Simulated assay, not measured.
Amino acid sequence: MTLLPVALGGTELVAWRLDQAVHAPTWDSGEGAYRVGGRWNSKGVRAVYCSLDPATAILEVAVHKGFRALDTVAHIITAAVIADAGDVHVVDPASVPNPNWLRPGIPGAGQQAFGDDLLRRHRFVAIPSAVSPYSWNLIFLADKAADAYTLKFQEAFGLDTRLHPPTA
């Protein structure tokens, strides 16, 4: 089923995430971010990274793993419905202290501390994606938002094979 985004008449705010199939049952645990940290959280913080559209969720994984991995390793795409859009804090890009934090690159300690603070203060945080600055990520703390969303579905993800063409 193709869900319509709110901008096109959909009625639900949906968070999207793409995981290796083996990790799909624990998609909302924040385990990966807890172990290694992320762009907007320091190590030891159980942040769950999603996107506000499925294409951005795919790009966010592809930028780290490549299209080959998305084509050859089983992945699951997850859709979760945010119960109350009013729980989402939208970060104004102009309010980010260092504009380089919104660009591709290795996150620094200041960026992670900024994100940790946002996540402590807000149930959900929407922030522009570094992969595509016209797209948005949605981040939340696993324990803080557990009762504020419902799983809509999880299904096998199939990469368009044109993104991993044969080599000559």
Rank of each mutant, 00 (worst) to 15 (best):
T2W: 09
L3F: 15
L4F: 14
P5A: 03
L8W: 14
L8M: 15
G9L: 04
T11V: 07
L13N: 01
L13F: 08
R17G: 02
D19L: 15
Q20A: 11
A21W: 09
S29D: 10
S29R: 03
S29T: 08
S29G: 15
G30M: 12
A33G: 14
Y34E: 11
G37A: 09
K43P: 05
A47F: 03
A47H: 05
Y49M: 12
Y49C: 11
S51K: 04
D53E: 06
D53H: 03
I58G: 00
V61K: 14
V61W: 00
V63G: 00
H64E: 04
A69H: 01
A74R: 13
H75Q: 04
I76S: 14
I77M: 14
A83F: 02
D84R: 14
D84M: 11
V90D: 04
V90K: 11
P97S: 05
N100P: 00
N100H: 15
W101D: 04
G105I: 05
F114H: 14
R121T: 05
R121V: 00
P133N: 14
N137Q: 05
L138H: 00
K144E: 12
K144N: 10
A146Q: 12
Y149S: 06
E155T: 11
A156T: 10
T161P: 06
R162H: 12
R162M: 14
L163A: 10
H164Q: 10
A168H: 07
A168W: 03
